[in-house]
């Protein structure tokens, strides 16, 4: 057993992870240098175990939670912004696509004809209905009055 062998085993022995075998024990009992190294290793181990455990500041949890909330809010802002920008791009692309299709297909001409036809239809409808408008108005007033009386009577009954 050489000093080198023992010195290599000093730390595990001091930490209690290894027991010195007979040869090592004999060497330690006769070699002052190795015995002193083992003592030093034991003292170091004890000092390390006695080291103060730093404690977090009292407001640590509150501050950490606030930071997490801020980070989450920031992430949500980024996601919202990206989502809105994406939607705007899609809307723009869709509008541009429709415009290209319509302009290339000549559908604008058909569209104008359809609008004119719809306008003419509306005008005819109004002209036909307008003479009877007072009758319809009177009928509506009577109906609303009747419903009002019915609601008033029912309301009293439920009280």
């Amino acid at each position: 057993m050489t000093c080198e062998d023992v010195l290599n085993a000093v730390e595990p022995i001091a930490a209690g992870e290894r027991q010195p075998d007979a040869g090592m024990a004999a060497h330690l009992s006769t070699c002052v240098s190795c015995a002193s190294a083992l003592d030093a290793a034991r003292r170091l181990d004890a000092l390390l175990r006695q080291r103060l455990v730093p404690t977090p500041p009292p407001q640590f949890t509150t501050r950490t939670m606030a930071r997490i909330r801020r980070a989450r809010w920031h992430n949500e802002q980024v996601i919202d912004w990206a989502f809105n920008a994406g939607l705007a791009l899609i809307a723009l692309a869709t509008a541009a696509g429709i415009w290209i299709i319509v302009s290339r297909s000549g559908f604008t001409l058909v569209g104008n004809d359809a609008l004119q036809l719809l306008g003419a239809g509306m005008r005819t409808f109004v002209q036909r209905v307008s003479p009877s408008l007072p009758v319809y108005a009177l009928a509506t007033v009577l109906l609303v009055t009747a419903l009002g009386i019915w609601w008033w009577a029912e309301r009293d009954a439920t009280l």
Binding site: V10, E11, P12, E17, S36, A37, A40, A41, L44, D45
Partner: peptide
């Protein structure tokens, strides 16, 4: 991990040689 820890302690022991006597 064990070897590195023992080396670390050995290095510490060397650094603190006079203090640990």
């Amino acid at each position: 991990v064990k070897t590195q820890l023992h080396r670390a302690k050995k290095q510490l022991r060397m650094l603190l040689e006079t203090d640990l006597r």
